[in-house]
Write a protein that binds this DNA or RNA. Structure first.
Length: 449
RNA sequence: GGCCCCAUCGUCUAGCGGUCAGGAUCCCAGGUUUUCAUCCUGGUUACAGGGGUUCGAGUCCCCUUGGGGUCACCA
């Protein structure tokens, strides 16, 4: 059984890039009946931020991804970490290091001036004397001294890290006893039974350290998939400056979870020429072997298109619900020209509500003397005669010998305030003759002032 | 700077030695629609550069260049 996990650190909201790795992890586990787990990485107590945690969970709820087990909090697992630290201490695979922070810093400086790579020199690795007084030791793990560690990554291929160039006896527990990141990640993944680790490739260079921990404890090494980053238009890491990176912002902007997920799925992954995926198709077709090796740039254009496509699949009631307006045929009239839920709302309300103001540009272009005259003839016709709107429309065009635009455009402005809306015939039919008369009267009234 | 990763249209990508280098998006043009952000049709645009290997290279190897990531008692 495949077990995957997503392990955010609760420093803020759920990031769009995080959602993508979570999605990959989720799909990969669920497609084969496995488990997807959620773990909050808060070993650093100052990072334990309740608001951030609930924000992250809320985001997952919105997109419909949920953990198959209770959410794991690292801050509650101190006992587990201690247990493994003690095991390592007892079997001599880890040791107490009494080097002070100052000493360490000094060592690093010296190494740097010698143009060496700053690394711990292993001075307490085989220490048997009496420890210095007044120094709370950290716990360091014994890393192999020579050779290299190969990360068998299923996205990038085998990546070799020479110990000489990359590793030292790194700290697994701080002086205050709190374990460090690379240690707890390995412990948790092993203890939680995670078989496949899918994460951002910014973690690739951490992986050898985690492998050191796995091997020291005799844990089975999981499969690793390091997925490339998502960049902004400048090719840099996505940051707040780049607009919406918080998953929940996309809800405010009128995007559907299905669209966001579909978009993210196709960023760094592909299935031949297929662009649109239903939830079931995602599950069926996702394979990590199709994950790309190179970073991709986040660009909103395709998301807009996908969102528009997904909107086409929703019912009138669903759209009404999402956009917070009353369900009515207006929605169906308007939906094809909308790419977000916000558009649905705006376009619908344009028709539902009587216009308060009339768009300058539209007036300038479509409300000249002859238009005025034509609109007025139309108005008189429907006001005094017992005639259908469609008939009145046709008659005016016929008797005045004008193209439809001459009547339709000013009429549209009178009805919805601008020269852009669905077919004016559809609009008048939906509004009904009384409302049409009323809106034209209002229009004349206001415009002549 | 050391180490590591990456490199096909503007963007997302297909391609796994022999293709007119395909699709999507964006953009542009034409058509339909009285308007239009819809719809239909068509179009422009790419293998970073240089060496190899091979009968043949976007595909394999090397170098250069460019970009990114990472180097903590942060995660």
């Amino acid at each position: 059984m495949i077990v995957t996990r997503f392990a955010p650190s609760p420093t803020g909201y759920l990031h769009i890039g995080g959602l993508r790795t979570a999605l990959f992890s989720y799909l990969w586990a669920k497609k084969s009946g496995g488990k997807f787990l959620l773990r909050i990485e808060d070993t650093d107590r100052s990072r334990h931020n309740e608001d951030a945690v609930s924000g992250i969970l809320k985001a997952f709820e919105w997109v419909g991804i949920k953990s198959d087990e209770e959410v794991v909090y690292q801050s509650e697992r101190q006992d587990i970490y201690n247990k493994y630290i003690n095991i390592l201490l007892q079997n001599g695979k880890a040791y107490k290091c009494y080097m002070s922070k100052d000493e360490l810093e000094q060592l690093r400086e010296e190494q740097t001036t010698r143009k060496e790579r700053p690394r711990y020199d292993g001075r307490y690795r085989n220490f048997t004397g009496t420890p210095p007084i007044g120094v709370e030791p950290v716990i360091r793990i014994k890393t192999p001294e020579t050779g290299s560690i190969i990360v068998r990554d299923l996205v990038k291929g085998d990546v070799e890290f020479s110990i000489e160039d990359n590793l030292d006896d790194f700290v697994i527990a701080r002086a205050d006893g709190m374990p460090t990141y690379n240690f707890v990640v390995a412990i948790d993944d092993a203890v939680m039974g995670v078989t496949d680790v899918i994460r951002g490739d910014d973690h690739l260079s951490n992986t050898p350290k985690q492998i050191v921990v796995y091997e020291a404890l005799g844990f089975k090494i999981p499969k690793f998939y390091h997925v490339p980053m998502i960049h902004n238009a400048e090719g840099k890491k996505l940051s707040k400056r780049d607009g919406a990176t918080d998953v929940l912002q996309y809800r405010e902007l009128g995007y559907l979870p299905d669209a966001l997920l579909n978009f993210l799925l196709r960023l760094g992954w592909s299935y031949r020429d297929k662009e649109l995926f239903s939830r079931n198709e995602m599950l069926e077709l996702f394979e990590p072997s199709n994950i790309n090796k190179s970073a991709s740039i986040f660009s909103i254009e395709k998301l807009n298109w996908i969102n528009g496509e997904k909107i086409k699949n929703l019912s009138q009631d669903q759209l009404a619900n999402l956009s917070g307006i009353e369900s009515s045929p207006v929605i169906d009239l308007v939906r094809d020209r909308c790419s977000t839920i916000i558009d649905i709302k705006i376009e619908s309300e344009k028709i539902i509500n009587q216009p308060e103001i009339y768009d300058e540009q539209s007036l300038k272009k479509h409300y000249r003397d002859d238009n005025k005259k034509i609109l007025n003839i139309f108005y008189e016709k429907i006001k005094n005669n017992n005639i259908s709107l469609a008939e009145a429309f046709a008659q005016v065009l016929e008797t005045e010998k004008v193209g439809m635009a001459k009547l339709a455009q000013p009429l549209r402005i009178a009805l919805v305030g601008v020269a852009q809306s669905p077919s004016v015939v559809d609009v008048i039919n939906i509004l009904g003759i009384k409302e049409v008369i009323y809106r034209i009267e209002k229009f004349f009234e206001r415009i002549e002032k």
